[in-house]
């Protein structure tokens, strides 16, 4: 016979539950009552986790606005060749530093007479790339290092994490600058530098999350089924640490953008004349007394994108923060 939980049995004895039985004509059996009760209890299919996260995210107004803003920035940057009114690289020497709303230059021109709106649209491509790609690279590598060290705890893990500690001993921007300075300028080198800078913090988050997972009893249960290390990592550890890592990494995209912009501000990022927000900010630095608004525009773009990333990441963290156990 089947053993039913007490909660399912108890209502069967009450008149209210008896009245709700499907067939009032025939006297309800205990079994039919249990079935009816069960059906009522589970009429609503449990919402899958990610659908619930999405629902919660979209109830967060700040998060939705930030996400929409990000979407706008990404789309306009990608579509820059279609949207931009001018050539991003060619300027008119006589039209230098025109203020915004002068003639057909909606946002004015830069120090070489190039249309600022055009340059900002194109510049978004590299700036977003320089923030996004290193975060993805660092997340993949950092997760691998962190979960392995947290799971293995042996010599290999210790060596890896002590190495991470040493990289962590450098202030982030400084390490990026030092790597960038040794590699030389260029977008690829900047991506590489920022990736290296972000591997240690992600590895740390991954490691501590993994350590919390490996002491759980479900890890022991899985080991008891004879599963090997890689299978355990893939099926038990990764699904349980990925959330934490992704939330953390999403918060890093904004920081990565800032550091990448800082690098190109120092001349270590994308090389002129290709537009990129950090480099544009630096190249117009000398004109801040004569054309303050124009100078501020690239910085404003970096700021807005970064705010959008951080707000969206905060909203994501809040909507993923559900009691799961």
């Amino acid at each position: 016979m089947t053993v039913w939980p007490l909660t399912k049995l108890a209502p069967a004895a009450t008149p209210a539950a008896a009245g709700a039985a499907p067939a009032p004509a025939a006297p309800p059996t205990a079994e039919s009552l249990r079935e009816a009760w069960w059906a009522a209890d589970h009429a609503i299919e449990p919402r899958p986790y990610w659908r619930e996260v999405r629902r919660r995210f979209f109830t967060n107004r700040a998060g939705v606005v930030a996400l929409a803003g990000l979407g706008l920035i990404v789309v306009t940057s990608v579509l820059a060749p279609l949207l931009a009114p001018y050539d991003p690289l060619v300027g008119v020497a006589t039209d230098r530093l025109m203020p915004p709303f002068s003639g057909s230059h909606v946002l004015g021109t830069d120090e070489q007479g190039r249309d600022l709106l055009t340059r900002l649209l194109y510049g978004g491509q590299l700036s977003l790339l320089a923030g996004f790609v290193p975060t993805v690279i660092a997340t993949v590598i950092g997760t691998a290092i962190g979960t392995w060290s947290g799971y293995k705890r042996g010599a290999s893990g210790t060596v890896l994490m002590r190495g991470m500690d040493m990289l962590y001993a450098f202030p982030a921007i400084l390490l990026a600058i030092a790597i960038g300075a040794s590699l030389g300028g260029g977008l690829l080198n900047s991506i590489l530098a920022v990736s290296v800078v972000f591997i240690p913090p992600i590895a740390r988050v991954a490691e501590s999350a993994t350590r919390q997972v490996v002491v759980q009893e479900y890890m022991e249960a899985a080991r008891l089924s004879g599963a090997g290390s890689l299978r355990l990592l893939r099926t038990q550890v990764l699904p349980n640490v990925l959330n934490q890592i992704l939330v953390y990494a999403s918060g890093l995209v904004g920081v990565a953008m800032l550091i990448a912009a800082g690098l190109s501000f120092l001349g270590l990022g994308s090389q002129p004349p290709t537009p990129e927000w950090g480099y544009m900010l630096n190249s117009m630095r000398d004109t801040l007394y004569s054309a303050p608004v124009n100078t501020m525009l690239p910085g404003l773009m970096i700021f807005l994108t970064s705010v959008a990333f951080n707000t969206a990441s905060d909203a994501l963290r809040e909507s993923m923060d559900m009691r799961l156990t």
Binding site: Q216, Y218, S225, T235, P239
Partner: peptide, 25 residues
């Protein structure tokens, strides 16, 4: 195991959890 909260992988459905040792074997 002792703790019904921590003995099941929170990211696996009940079916997956029970099938896991079988699949491994």
């Amino acid at each position: 195991f002792q703790d019904p909260h921590s003995a099941l992988n929170p990211r696996a459905t009940i079916g997956e959890a029970i099938a896991f040792p079988l699949r491994t074997q």
